[in-house]
Amino acid sequence: MNGRAPTGSEARADALEYGTRGKTVLAEKVIEKIASQVARDESTSSGSAGGFMGIGSHADSSARPRTSVQLTGNIAALSVEVGLPYPAPLRQGTQFLRERITSRVSEMTGVEVRQVDIRVSWLTMAKEPVGRRRLL
């Protein structure tokens, strides 16, 4: 940084130099994994486990929700299949999840997330709060 704007010949040289460094391809799978990880870690949603070809699977709070992505250039459209706790408000819960996925995926990958479709496929009854331990 010498404080002056690059001249035309310098800019061309830079472009040539960048061109020789190769290119970065962001696979759709990467975005899918990031989105499902964000959904599991940063919201109350969960995924499913077990079963064969989707038959007989059951809700598992430690599993990542199933996610699929359609990447067109730098714009992504995601679909997430999640389980949520019952009776948490579904509208609020899914909207929060959508906002988290949108912002975190954009932050981590630089991809613009245009839409996140959410399908709530199971609801798990919230467990009773564990009673306080008695101190003697």
Binding site: L90, Q115, D117, V120
Partner: peptide
């Protein structure tokens, strides 16, 4: 910013 769907059968199970 996207669709949110839930099958009534899912709620029925809960």
């Amino acid at each position: 910013g996207g669709r949110t769907l839930c099958d009534p059968a899912v709620l029925a199970r809960a």
